[in-house]
């Protein structure tokens, strides 16, 4: 299914004739739509912490503190840090 979804996305890039084109695929998230009843019925977001949030503790110990492929961007003009 993943392959087909990506394939459809690539085909849309090839075939779209106007910006904003949307294609509905014939896939369902689940056998029925009961899951929709619970979507965004409250705030399920985690606390927004400003330190790296690793998937597991081992990742933190293996992280390169100089990480050349981690790119930090300066704030835009007129913005603070």
């Amino acid at each position: 299914m993943q392959r087909d979804v990506v394939r459809h996305a690539l085909d849309l890039i090839r075939d779209a004739t106007v910006p904003g084109t949307v294609t509905e695929l014939d896939y369902r998230w689940a056998p029925d739509d009961a899951w929709k009843d619970g979507v965004m019925r409250g705030d399920s977001r985690q606390e927004r912490i400003d330190t790296p949030q690793y998937q597991c503790a081992e990742d933190a110990s293996l992280a390169d503190p100089e990480c050349p492929t981690c790119v930090w961007l300066a704030p835009g003009v007129g913005e603070g840090a």
Partner: peptide
């Protein structure tokens, strides 16, 4: 091996 993102308006990229 990379540094993970943080969750508070992190606009860096990997």
């Amino acid at each position: 091996g990379q540094i993970a993102f943080h969750h508070r308006d992190d606009f860096s990229y990997r």
